[in-house]
Design a binder for these strands. Structure first.
Lengths: 147, 147
DNA sequence: ATTCTTGCAAACGGTTTGCACATAC
DNA sequence: GTATGTGCAAACCGTTTGCAAGAAT
């Protein structure tokens, strides 16, 4: 999380123009603890700067995420996906082709943490998402590099 | 994962009519290892039963997920959400109000598993999502129960 | 002066909905 | 026979895009 000065500096380093819109969007996102949606941000930021458009909010968020100044929490979940297997297991998500595979591992089903001890939150289940590159995409990428 | 006979039985128990559409959708979902989208399922199932409609696929998947016969892998990710904090941390997702909070815990950043050893997949990072009920929703639910 | 960004409105695409017909029970 | 589910088309809504005007460098 960056101070406003750091934010400006990072934008400069990455060749992003520093605009008022970008600053207030970042400022609000920084203050928020609840991972707001674009719509949430738009509503709040509009109070301070009524002429801002929703499209700008979307574009700004995507730009900042691309440059890794912020994170898109739901990066890999643009489409609803279903699974006939309701038993406990976790997922390997290919950031390239976006396919989702299962991973079964007993160790992963007993995390080294006391779930009861999380304050103010009653955990019912958890899910681990491993992000990476699947074998098929690894092969394709190597092919491309050689070409 | 259920055999076809078990699937039929479970539907009956839950008061769901057993239709040919539901059976082929479940059959395909069961066979698939890649957590297909509704569109994926529609395309494949249409080959076997060309008159099926996309709306039926959506309705069936939602119905089966509600009754916990299948799982919606991306259940909590209907909207894109952003985070100004790019440091390693995990998420508490309230299944009720859908808010997402952070959880910082060093133990969770070193999982008891050899990430290099996952076959055919190069893991770059992972993210744990704890699903449960946040304190605010716990309070609200208790209020409702008393009423 | 040039390049990047904004704001608007229109388009897009995944998902949901209303309703008449068909099917399961 | 009644309740439930299906298929179609239209609506919906979050998100993206094209483009002309404006701002940052």
């Amino acid at each position: 999380m960056l101070s406003m000065d750091q934010f400006i500096q990072v934008c400069r380093e990455k060749g992003l123009n520093v605009t008022y819109q970008r600053m207030i969007i970042y400022k609000y996102l920084m203050q928020s603890k609840e991972h707001p949606t674009a719509e949430d941000i738009y509503r709040r930021v509009k109070e301070e700067y009524p002429s801002i458009s929703l499209a700008t909010v979307y574009k700004t968020l995507e730009t900042l995420a691309e440059h890794q100044v912020i994170t898109k929490v739901t990066a890999l979940h643009d489409l609803a996906r279903y699974d006939a297997d309701t038993s406990p297991h976790h997922h390997l998500v290919c950031i390239h082709c976006r396919r989702v595979q299962d991973i079964y591992n007993e160790e992963l089903n007993k995390l080294p943490i006391d779930l009861e001890a999380i304050p103010d939150f009653k955990v019912q289940r958890y899910r681990i998402e491993f992000e990476g590159i699947c074998s098929q995409c690894q092969a394709n990428l190597q092919k491309k590099q050689r070409a």
